[in-house]
Design a protein around this nucleic acid. Sequence first.
DNA 1: CCTACAAGTTAACCTTGGCTAAAATAGTGT
DNA 2: ACACTATTTTAGCCAAGGTTAACTTGTAGG
Lengths: 172, 172
Amino acid sequence: MLPYEHFGYIGPMTDSPNDVTPDRLCKADALPPSDQHAQQYAAVRNAHETELLEDYVELIADLLEHQGEARSTDIAARMGVSQATVSKTVTRLKSLGLVSSKPYRSLFLTEKGEAMAAMSHQRHAIVLQFLRALGVSDRTARIDAEGMEHHVSQETLEIMQRYTREQGHRDV
Amino acid sequence: MLPYEHFGYIGPMTDSPNDVTPDRLCKADALPPSDQHAQQYAAVRNAHETELLEDYVELIADLLEHQGEARSTDIAARMGVSQATVSKTVTRLKSLGLVSSKPYRSLFLTEKGEAMAAMSHQRHAIVLQFLRALGVSDRTARIDAEGMEHHVSQETLEIMQRYTREQGHRDV
DNA sequence: CCTACAAGTTAACCTTGGCTAAAATAGTGT
DNA sequence: ACACTATTTTAGCCAAGGTTAACTTGTAGG
């Protein structure tokens, strides 16, 4: 079950003699001050709260664009989750003012929801393209992007975007 | 509250004419087949399950190494969480055979726990160093790494590691 | 028209990860 | 040895994100 059990993992890194920036490495090894450390974890917890919501609005926007409507069956199928779960989450999305719909009918995004979807989509695209520009395979890039997108800061996003652009100029 | 509300976000990306690999972009815009899509989300949900556990064992290992012992107070302070929460999570870690301790005593890692910690630590280090090599500031890199580490596949990790190494040779 | 099936909702339950407040234990100082 | 303080645990609460099973509603077909 626990995925770390089958691991012949990564190999170098401890024993590679030409390791990276040795003094930085030392710093990385020291524990940061408690309060700063706590803020890091808080940031992650924070991201977790909106993650699912973002995934939903993003998916709803995609479905609306590509299929004309967003039914909960499709969402359930695409998320790999039961319809009951979708129903419950959608209720929450509605109460947050991100989604609107009449009962038993297709879903729509409010303005707020569209803003969130747009932002989410953009972030997703940047991360995905960046990974591909790095040389990651399509399939893996998709999976990783899905997980990473919610944890990439503005600053890093901009850097990724720049990298992708440069890379694009170089080898396309 | 919802963090996407204050956004003058990223700027280019839609309107940049020198965009990346146009045919790939098109593909990215189409929806993947449902079942594959579902697998992506499943992978993320899966990662979520072990995330917190990994953070705990990683932190415990760090504390053991740098302070000689791992008390729940320290964990609580570093995680930015109440001691009661730590206590409950530790119970779970014990039941999973990752951590051992006698009641009211300091914590230790089992072999399984150490394996997990080692793997987690390695992954964390790779991601952190990669971000810094990319040019992300230290503070941001730490935060992003904390969130990203659990969502980066083996394949991507190796690529990141390679990139960091090359980058290190070039500009150190 | 009305019936059958697909789609959506509701109810009841579970686990995780938070919290506070209160009780139990360990360690320390006099 | 005893009492005080700091640490740990327990109990009881909450919300989120899942599940199944049962119930409603919409929509086609005959």
